[in-house]
Design a binder for these strands. Structure first.
Length: 432
RNA sequence: UCCGGCGUAGCUCAACCGGUAGAGCGGGUGGCUGUUAACCACUAGGUUGGGGGUUCGAGUCCCUCCGCCGGAGCCA
């Protein structure tokens, strides 16, 4: 007997197959059962007819209920009445487990609190299935993009002594006798070290921000992809980013289009995403905002509304470059002719999804970096290794970080980032 | 942390000016050979988030605590 997955059935019409999976819904008309079946690769309808089956087979299948696990033996039939194009006519139904209690997630609406409490079961629902399949495609695309360009994957540590961004948003832990360490906010400083050894490097992993953020675009634990390249300056950095983002979107359209369509995503907006992306300076962004009626002043950072307003002027993602150095991190390279701004860029996604990338050229001069550490009140001794990178073989270098969940939310068209990760860690939720 | 809203059956919600708790889904029983959130009939299911107060009477009004949702700040 040939054990097949649902995703393979279209190529096996007329064959007798075995399916192993779960019942996500049951309908019955007395002498005919319709089992809505899923196996982790897709969904298909299984038909069990009383007239063409042994009585015990039909009897066994009547006992199935939602989220029973079951092995089906049957024949694959083409059928235009089925939304999937094929269905399986069963001649044997073997229950693996039949639940004693009703399945908590019903076919009708649920509130988000209830669903998040049952996230471990909610993952089985079709919408969540499609979202996480797109997430998987995005992560595969990132790895493939760097493999094609011969970058080296460098896994950066989760425990860190040095601070990447700003203090105050760090999760603090006791590390034996050493004292306090922090959960990483970014692997960037370590990638900078690695890029001076390997030239072109990237990472992909979880990061943590102890921010009491309560918005649709924040998680406490989120995944970030970062890249860092030696000898890259500002414009090289932007080019890499627009190529990466375009590659991801194209890859998803080629490999996970059905999932996007199942999510009712407007594909036409994603099809426009290809290099080059527009670049707009912070100065011009401020003018644009003021023209639209905002009271923002030069020197202010943007909030979610400002980002949405700026991005709404563009169909593709847009770079906002050269922010005032006071609103950005200590390591960013100043623009030589205008030292009050830095060589950085945020990439804003269209359709109100906000910042998906933050990047910059890094300071490579020892003296300047030392001044900035003092200016930001960072303890020099913890950064000695980072200063070493400017003592030996220092070169201009640039990099960026891309938020995975925000990218998933944008590409899938989600209303809230909590659906973009299998088990979201939000402000007051750690269960399940 | 601040601002706003909500908390009634397992779930999603209703209940007028304060007058004594109701529907759909889910569950159970029965029916139905093409269902698509199947349908039809019957049926079980409630200390209205906790505590206190006002009142002849509180799901409804007041105080307080807890929980959740939305937004702001911060940020990817």
């Amino acid at each position: 007997m040939n054990w097949l997955y649902v995703e393979e059935l279209r190529n096996h019409i007329g064959e007798e197959v075995e399916l192993r999976g779960w019942v996500w819904n049951m309908r019955s008309s007395g002498k005919i059962h319709f089992i809505q079946f899923r196996d982790g690769t897709g969904f298909v309808q299984v038909v069990v007819e009383s007239s063409s089956n042994k009585p015990e087979v039909f009897e066994r299948s009547s006992k199935l209920r939602i989220e029973s696990s079951v092995i089906i033996k049957g024949k694959v039939m083409e059928d235009k009445r089925s939304p999937y194009g094929v269905e399986v006519h069963a001649y044997d139904v073997i229950p693996v487990q039949i639940p004693d209690e009703p399945y908590p997630i019903s076919k009708k609406d649920h509130g988000i609190d209830f669903l998040m409490s049952y996230r471990h079961l909610w993952l089985r629902s079709r919408r969540q299935f499609h979202i996480l399949k797109v997430r998987d495609a995005i992560l595969t695309a990132i790895r493939q993009f760097y493999k094609d360009r011969n970058f080296t994957l460098i896994d950066t540590p989760i425990f860190t002594g040095a601070i990447g961004e700003t203090a105050g948003n760090l999760f603090e832990l006791d590390y034996f006798d050493y004292g306090k360490v922090y959960l990483t906010q970014t692997g960037q400083l370590y990638l900078e070290a690695a890029c001076l050894a390997f030239g072109k490097v990237y990472n992909l992993g979880p990061t943590f921000r102890a921010e009491k953020s309560k918005t649709r675009r924040h998680l406490i634990e989120f995944w970030m992809h970062e890249a860092e390249v030696a000898y890259y300056e500002h414009e090289d950095n932007l080019k890499l980013q627009e190529e990466l983002v375009s590659y991801i979107v194209k890859y998803v359209l080629q490999n996970a289009k059905d999932h996007l369509l199942a999510l009712n995503r407007d594909i036409s907006k994603l099809e426009k995403v290809e290099p080059p992306f527009e670049r707009i300076t912070y100065d011009d962004a401020i003018k644009l905002l003021q023209k639209s009626g905002s009271h923002i002043q030069w020197g202010d950072d943007f909030g979610g509304d400002e980002e949405t307003m700026i991005a709404s002027n563009f169909e593709k993602p847009v770079f906002v470059t050269h922010y005032p150095r006071k609103v950005k991190a200590f390591y960013m390279q100043p623009e030589p002719k205008r030292p009050e701004v830095v060589r950085c860029a945020d990439l804003l996604a269209p359709e109100g999804y906000g910042e998906i990338i933050g990047g910059s050229q890094r300071i490579h001069d020892y003296q300047l970096l030392l001044e900035r550490l003092e200016e930001f009140n960072l303890p020099k001794e913890k950064y000695e290794w980072y200063l070493d990178l400017r003592r030996w073989g220092s070169v201009p270098h640039s990099g960026f970080g891309l938020g995975i969940e925000r990218t998933v939310a944008w590409i899938c068209g989600l209303e809230h980032i909590r659906e973009a990760i299998p088990f979201a860690r939000t402000l007051y939720r750690i269960y399940p």
